[in-house]
Amino acid sequence: MAISLQKGQKIDLRKSTGEALTNFCVGVNWGAIETVKSGFLGFGSKKVVEDVDLDLSCIMLNANGDLIDWLYSPDYNAWLSQNNIPLGKLTSKDGGLRHSGDDRQGDVGGDDGLDNEIISVDLNKVSPDVDKIFFFLNIYLNEGQNFDFAQIPFAKIRMYEGTPTKVNSVHSNYDIVTDASYRGKGALILGKLYRRNGEWKFDAIGEPADDKIFVQTIQRILENYK
Rank of each mutant, 00 (worst) to 15 (best):
A2H: 08
L5Y: 04
L5K: 02
L5A: 08
Q6K: 13
Q6R: 08
G8M: 09
G8W: 06
I11Y: 00
D12G: 04
R14A: 06
S16Y: 03
G18Q: 02
L21V: 04
T22N: 08
N23G: 02
C25G: 00
V26K: 00
V26R: 01
V26Y: 04
G27A: 13
G31P: 03
A32W: 08
E34W: 07
V36P: 00
K37L: 09
S38G: 14
F43T: 14
G44I: 10
S45H: 09
K46A: 14
V48Q: 04
D51A: 15
V52E: 01
L56K: 06
L56G: 01
S57A: 15
C58D: 00
C58G: 01
I59W: 05
I59A: 06
I59M: 10
I59V: 14
L61Q: 00
A63P: 01
A63S: 09
N64F: 10
N64I: 09
G65R: 02
D66R: 08
D66I: 12
I68V: 05
L71Q: 04
L71P: 06
S73R: 02
S73M: 06
P74R: 06
Y76K: 07
Y76N: 12
A78E: 14
L80W: 03
Q82C: 06
N83M: 10
N84R: 05
K89L: 04
L90E: 07
L90A: 10
S92H: 04
D94I: 00
G95M: 03
S100I: 03
G101P: 08
D102L: 11
G106A: 08
V108S: 09
G110F: 09
L114P: 03
L114N: 10
I118S: 01
I119H: 03
I119C: 03
V121K: 00
N124Y: 10
S127Q: 10
P128I: 04
P128C: 07
D129G: 00
K132I: 03
I133P: 00
F135G: 00
F136G: 01
F136Y: 12
I139E: 07
N142K: 15
F149L: 10
A150K: 10
A150Y: 14
Q151T: 15
I152D: 02
I152G: 03
I152W: 11
F154I: 06
A155V: 14
R158C: 06
R158A: 07
G162R: 04
T163Y: 11
T165P: 01
K166C: 07
K166N: 10
V167C: 08
N168E: 15
S172W: 02
D175Y: 13
I176R: 07
V177T: 15
D179A: 13
S181N: 13
S181L: 14
Y182F: 15
R183G: 13
G184I: 12
G186Q: 12
A187Y: 09
A187K: 05
I189W: 07
L190A: 11
R195H: 08
R195W: 05
R196S: 11
R196M: 09
N197D: 12
N197M: 06
G198N: 05
G198C: 08
W200N: 02
K201S: 02
F202E: 00
F202G: 00
F202D: 03
I205K: 05
I205Y: 10
E207I: 14
K212M: 13
F214H: 14
Q219P: 03
L222V: 12
E223Y: 13
N224H: 14
N224T: 15
